[in-house]
Amino acid sequence: MELRHLRYFVTLAEELHFGKAAEKLHIAQPPLSQQIRQLETELGFELFHRTKRKVELSEAGEVFLVEVQQIFRQLEQAIFLGRQVSRGEIGQLVVGFVSSAAYNILPNILQNTRNSIPNVSLELHELTTDEQLRWLQSGRIDVGFVRPPVDENTYESKVIFQESLAIALPQNHFLANQDRVSLQSLKNESFILFPRFLAPGLYDQIISFCQQVGFSPKVAQEAIQMQTIVSLVAAEIGVAIVPESLQNLRRTGVIYKYFVEKTPQVSIAIIWRKNDVSVVLDRFLEVF
């Protein structure tokens, strides 16, 4: 049994006239009659009652018609979904992001994705840059938002956001009333910083910024997540140089100040595996 045999049957069932059905199917009437008889033989029951004057569906034919029409509806749905998948309009992406991205680019990314490809679902994982590189290499995530630089031989990447640095201070710090803070005035402070291996690009920019004004920061405590760093500032463990968008993280006991000095521009990049052939990923990348 072939799909065309079922199409012949449905058309004849709708027309109940071999001549009209044959014309609609663009075939001659004798071959249509022959194909219907072959189908009945294969099925083992009669689909139509035929007389010289009319053609009628048998009781079995009426039941068979309902089921075959359901098959064609499912087939149309399968074709529709297949086309959506082939165009990257439906599917899932597993996405990693550094914690600070939640305070700048991530909300817009989620909104733009919903607007552009609403049937693509995103599975989000908050990860450090170092963790994202490992997860991306092992296939656990499809795309990430990291602090560059990254290995250009292994990954494709694109910088999508840049910002300046700011200083997070305890709210009762002696510099809290100043409009802007000179970095040099913090040379004797204890700093809270993350381990370098987690995001070496951002780490090196912070250290270099301090060295440009003549000191290396004294690290009192290390923490992995930006939220933890800010909480330690609130606990008066030290001060922290952070991306300026972290001001969107409202934390009692912490104030943020801009620097007098011009700060380096710190970036967030979107990153994915080289030669990734995912159509859904291609559609996602079009958002940027």
Rank of each mutant, 00 (worst) to 15 (best):
N275Q: 14
V146L: 11
A223E: 03
A28M: 14
A223D: 00
L136I: 08
E56S: 11
F194G: 02
T129E: 00
I241A: 00
L122A: 10
S190E: 10
L12W: 05
Q74K: 15
Q29V: 15
V277W: 06
V85H: 14
Q247P: 11
E152A: 12
Q74Y: 11
D282C: 00
E40T: 05
T129W: 01
S99I: 05
E286F: 10
K24R: 15
H5G: 11
V181R: 01
M1S: 08
F145V: 04
V277S: 14
V143L: 11
R147A: 13
L43K: 06
N115I: 01
V55H: 09
A101D: 04
T228L: 01
E126Q: 13
L25C: 09
I27V: 12
L198G: 05
L122P: 04
R50C: 07
V150F: 02
I229H: 01
S182M: 14
V63F: 15
L136H: 07
E152L: 10
V85R: 15
E76A: 15
F197S: 08
S121T: 14
S164W: 11
A240L: 04
V95F: 02
D276R: 03
R73G: 01
C210R: 04
E152P: 02
I71T: 03
G88K: 08
S267W: 07
G214K: 02
P170M: 02
L124G: 06
H125N: 03
E286L: 14
I255M: 04
D130H: 01
A234S: 09
A21M: 04
P264N: 03
A101C: 07
Q162Y: 11
E261T: 09
I268A: 12
R251E: 08
F45V: 06
Q178K: 06
L198A: 09
L16M: 03
H17L: 09
H49S: 13
I167N: 11
E15Y: 03
T154P: 02
P243I: 00
P243L: 00
F194W: 12
V85Y: 15
H49K: 14
E67H: 10
I36K: 12
G253K: 07
I160T: 12
I206V: 14
A223P: 02
S267I: 02
I237D: 03
E40L: 05
I105E: 08
V66Q: 15
L249I: 05
I117P: 00
A176I: 12
A28N: 15
Q34R: 13
V280I: 05
V63M: 15
Q77M: 15
V150I: 06
K262H: 06
